[in-house]
Design a protein around this nucleic acid. Structure first.
Length: 792
DNA sequence: TAGTCTACTTAGGAGGCCCCTA
DNA sequence: TAGGGGCCTCCTAAGTAGACTA
């Protein structure tokens, strides 16, 4: 292996020039238009940020004026469209900026730079490649007769039990503190008995042996999917107008028209691609007469339809208690019948037992197919998967299934092919099911195996930056980004079929900017690209010199729309990773880095002597660090400003109350000094307590405000559900409590230490404060198996 | 080796439920 | 008790990655 001294920078460049065969030219033409679009977008962005403030006010004025003049199709006119677009983009831009700010803030606050884990982790000298034993499957003993299994008795709660439990929960709910109080400050742990009871009844699949690789189940029975209700024609009083004249539409045409009408207030219906696609598909449903008449979407007036649906929605909200209860019961009945299956000898919840109803496709970003008609799925489209010895679900009368399959190498129960992209959709089990839980557990175990050999892998890719092979260098730099920045792999996508988004391997030259020096830092790479769901990834990252030089070479003689890593794709990368560690793919780095970051941040941020509210804030901050790393953004809630203002006024009011209480205390103290009797002393005590109580309440409100502000544009849920090993969280909850015990006043007074212990138990963060009910169900395995010593 | 298909995970938004406050 | 608002659940789009095929 050659050392650094053998490859100085000029040599690297020379190597590349020799190796580069300019394959990228092939892709050049295909990408020209995309590049132009991206460039346009960027320019727009820059322009907008210059004028955003004044523009916003202007456009708001204009908007109000033009509001009166609506399009005939019910959508607002062009100015409104532009205004909406601008507003949204502005919001997006603010979101990005704020995310960046949050990142910087975090770095300052916690010393957490993006991402600190590479440096923070303990050095592992040995080149560790896990042995087969290390990766043996997670075990649970299975009954001997499993192979010939026939369902006899459902072990999990049956319907009656479940109903009883629900009733109990409901009753309990009346006694319990309201849910939202959870968010505020903890009450003593010993009041939280119910979840334990819930969990006791659960099947602990994690204590049993797993099936051999590839076998997903041995018995599977279910009732099939629930289809969307048939179309109900509009009442006669709801009119559609074309070019100002009433027009009665045929049922098919009317149904598709209602899809558009239902979305009239949505930004989608102002987008040109959406309107074009919709109109094209709508016309396909029209009769010849309708086709001849309706030739221009702008002349269509859907207003009455839209109003009708709004009124219906309003009526639903205004339903009486009894009516609402009836609807609820009907839904529960449906869930009971179709929402569960029997997989092996257990009753498992199905995630999505309802077939997606017809409607208009809502692609994200600049999706070229948005607005297309998602057709109604019929039983004849459906493939049923169940075991041979199970009762095959009956199709709706007069219909038949497309196919009945008995494939126990897959986990889905029902599938169909959708018409927009031709992709297959599935009905699968709920995240709380064995089949999903096992996979989840396995995912975190793979990430933990990566922890053992990540140093070796990092050393390897550092070496590969100097390779003579272009492909190897590109692979090494890409892997560095995936590791350092938690970028997604970036599979190749079919052009024109989806929005133009990229991940690491599919980055183009136009998506990065190289700055030899920026803001006092050397070798800064500026990333700016649309990622998954067209969420913008924007980041300025100082990189190692060799990476920087390599990037310069990768970009040499390329057009902005050319691939940055033209010798690389996710297949090549993953194959290489597979050689480094069994089961390793690009995705594992994201899981690993997210989980290790959480663990480190929790250690750094959580102080044992903090109260529960502060500990929750610390947890959320650690969670937030991960969400920022993974670029999990959300649109700020519409009511954000208002709710912050409300919270601020509560804080102000509390401050006033506190000032009054302090004043009262002072005068009570003065009285006590003069009077010197028991009564006034008692008054002083009670005033003191009042001050304390108010101080605590104020602190809670302030913590809440900080948490909410910091969370404005960051989505914590995605990382919590998909990237953070739940065992870290579970261990932390007990760890926070127990570390308090050891860190107490033991050294000074044993008595004090005893008091501290009780206090800590009382103030430990219950898992319910971090995971809601659904999350606890999903992570039941982790909650059950983890103790406070758990290390990711 | 590239292209396609399939099976699965990851993702943000919409909307409704339910709690809190006035 | 009604209305407001926050959180949870549902929904389904959009990714990843392995298997298969030519």
């Amino acid at each position: 292996m050659s050392g650094d001294h053998l490859h100085n920078d000029s040599q690297i460049e020379a190597d590349f020039r020799l190796n580069d065969s300019h394959k990228h030219k092939d892709k050049h033409k295909d990408r020209e238009h995309r590049h132009k679009e991206h460039k346009k977008d960027k320019e727009k962005d820059r322009e907008k940020s210059k004028h955003s403030n004044s523009e916003h006010k202007d456009s708001e004025k204009k908007h109000k004026e033009k509001e009166k003049n609506k399009h005939k199709d019910g959508s607002s006119e062009k100015h409104k469209d532009k205004h909406k677009d601008r507003d949204k983009e502005k919001r997006k831009e603010e979101k990005i900026r704020a995310a960046g700010d949050a990142k910087i803030k975090k770095e300052k606050e916690n010393g957490f730079s993006s991402p600190p884990r590479i440096k923070d982790e303990p050095e592992d000298d040995g080149y560790f490649v896990p042995s087969k034993e290390d990766i043996k499957p997670l075990k649970r003993p299975r009954d001997e007769d499993d192979a010939d299994y026939k369902p006899k008795k459902i072990k999990t709660e049956d319907i009656k039990k479940e109903k009883k439990r629900k009733l109990e929960e409901e009753e309990d709910g009346k006694l319990k503190k309201p849910k939202n109080k959870d968010k505020k400050v903890a009450e003593p742990d010993n009041k939280k008995k119910k979840p334990k009871k819930e969990e006791e009844q659960k099947w602990k699949w994690w204590e049993e042996e797993r099936y051999p690789e590839g076998i997903k189940w041995k018995f599977l029975e279910h009732k099939g999917p629930v289809f969307a209700p048939p179309y109900e024609p509009l009442p006669d009083g709801v009119k559609f107008y074309y070019d100002g004249k009433v027009m009665k539409l045929s049922p098919k045409t009317e149904e598709v028209a209602t899809f558009f009408a239902k979305m009239l207030d949505h930004e989608y219906t102002t987008k040109e691609i959406f309107r074009k696609n919709f109109f094209k598909d709508w016309r396909k449903e029209m009769t010849n007469d309708e086709k001849n008449t309706i030739t221009n979407l702008s002349k269509c007036d859907f207003t009455q339809m839209s109003q009708y649906f709004k009124a219906q929605s309003e009526a639903r909200k205004q339903m009486s208690k009894e009516e609402k209860l009836k609807v609820k019961e009907e839904n529960e009945k449906l869930l009971k019948e179709y929402g569960f299956c029997v997989m092996d000898n257990h009753r498992e919840r199905i995630a999505n037992f309802k077939i997606e109803p017809p409607g208009l496709f809502r692609g994200r970003g600049n999706h070229p197919k948005m607005g297309m008609l998602k057709r109604r799925i019929m039983p004849e489209d459906i493939i049923i998967n169940c075991s041979k010895d199970a009762k095959v679900p009956s199709p709706p009368s007069g219909h038949k299934w497309k196919e009945v399959r008995h494939d126990n190498k897959v986990t889905w129960l029902v599938s169909w092919t959708e018409n927009i992209q031709g992709s297959i959709k599935y009905i699968m089990l709920n995240p709380s099911s064995r089949i999903k839980g096992e996979k989840d557990w396995q995912k975190y175990e793979t990430a933990r195996r990566l922890k053992k050999c990540v140093d070796k892998i990092r050393n390897q890719y550092r070496e590969d930056w100097k390779s003579k092979e272009m492909k190897v260098r590109q692979r090494a730099v890409a892997l560095y980004f995936i590791d350092k920045l938690a970028l997604r792999a970036g599979n190749e996508k079919e052009e024109g079929e989806t929005a133009d988004t990229v991940g690491c391997c599919s980055l183009r030259v136009e998506h990065i900017n190289l700055h030899p020096e920026l803001d006092g830092q050397e070798y800064v790479v500026e990333f700016d690209f649309p990622g998954k769901d067209s969420i913008r990834y924007y980041n300025k990252v100082p990189v190692e010199k060799r990476v920087f030089k390599n990037l310069q070479l990768f970009m040499e003689n390329k057009q902005p729309e050319d691939d940055l890593f033209d010798r690389l794709n996710t297949g090549i990368l993953n194959k290489h990773l597979q050689d480094l560690m069994e089961g390793l793919t690009a995705k594992v780095f994201r899981t690993y880095n997210a989980s290790i970051t959480l663990q480190q941040q929790l250690k750094e941020l959580t102080a044992a002597d903090e109260n529960v509210a502060a500990k929750i804030l610390s947890y959320n901050r650690a969670n937030r660090a991960v969400a920022i790393l993974c670029n999990h953004q959300r649109a700020p809630p519409k009511t954000f400003e208002k709710s912050m203002m409300n919270l601020q006024s509560k804080i102000d009011a509390k401050k006033d109350q506190l000032a009054d209480a302090r004043r009262d205390l002072k005068s009570a103290k003065a009285d006590a000094k003069v009077m010197k009797d028991a009564k006034t002393k008692k008054v002083v005590e009670s005033k003191k307590k009042a001050v304390q109580r108010l101080e605590e309440q104020l602190m809670k409100l302030e913590v809440q405000a900080t948490d909410r502000e910091e969370n404005k544009q960051i989505a914590l849920g995605t990382s919590k559900l998909n990237y953070l090993d739940p065992r870290i969280t579970v261990a932390c909850q007990s760890h926070c409590t127990s570390s308090g015990r050891t860190k107490g006043r033991e050294a000074y007074t044993p008595e004090g230490s005893f008091r501290e212990l009780v206090q800590c138990k009382k103030w430990g963060v219950p898992i319910e404060k971090i995971y809601n009910k659904t999350q606890r169900e999903k992570f039941a395995w982790a909650i059950d198996m983890t103790d406070e010593d758990y290390e990711f």
